[in-house]
Amino acid sequence: MRCSLLTALAVTLLGVAVLAWGTDGFRAFTDEGARRLAVHTSPRPLPAVTLQDQTGRRFSLDELRGRLLAVEFIYVNCPSVCRALGQAFQRVRDALPASVPGRELMLLSISFDPERDHPARLADYAARYHADGEAWRVARVEDPDELQALLRSFGIVVIPDGFGGFEHNAALHLVDRRGRLVRIEDHDRPLAFVERVREWL
């Protein structure tokens, strides 16, 4: 009987140890949780990429250093989560003092479908959510290698769904003034994201 109890206790302790190791000390129970924790504890520098926005202007991420960036990843034909992302960005913009968007913070919606999301289509998305092209820009990365590097740095997974669309993870991302990804929040918690922005202002 005593041997059975000791064996059960040993197995339980081993299970707890494995769970603690696999969840980074019980802090991350999913891949998404692990991604967010990793960014929070070790901010990620972003690669040098060139983007083209809804007006056709080209710019680099490096040009945006010196102010905070709120970043979402979308594609214009997305029938579901991208609409929720656009609405979340509207709420973020509207919850901040009018002087913040454009000066201290830029909202940046990045399409991962650059072949179809040319500037005119990006402009349609921008018009839908009242993205003005200054405080909130909608852009694409034309170079496939640069796009993949950017998606990797943010931990964005994009999988073709076989019907002309994509499955992808969705969140609101905060980039600091030094060009590092520092926080990730759920897209359905825009006001929590606003609080993260306020902490960095």
Rank of each mutant, 00 (worst) to 15 (best):
L191G: 01
R177L: 06
R180D: 00
A170S: 11
D176M: 13
L172G: 00
E185W: 05
V182P: 06
L174W: 04
V194P: 05
D176A: 14
E195H: 15
V194D: 00
G179S: 08
G164W: 02
R177Q: 13
H173W: 05
I184F: 08
F166W: 07
D188Y: 04
V194N: 10
L181Y: 00
V194F: 07
V194E: 00
F166A: 07
D186M: 11
A192G: 10
V175K: 05
R180W: 05
R180E: 00
A192P: 02
H168G: 07
L174I: 09
F163Y: 07
A192M: 11
R183M: 09
R196E: 15
F166P: 01
D188Q: 08
E195M: 04
V197W: 14
V175Y: 09
R183E: 11
D176E: 06
R177Y: 05
L172A: 06
R196K: 15
H168V: 02
F193T: 03
R189V: 09
L181F: 06
F163T: 04
E167I: 12
D186T: 05
N169I: 08
A171R: 04
F166V: 02
E185N: 11
R183A: 15
G179P: 04
R183S: 12
R189W: 05
G164V: 01
R180I: 01
P190N: 07
V182I: 14
H168P: 08
A171F: 10
R196W: 14
D176R: 11
F166Y: 15
I184Q: 09
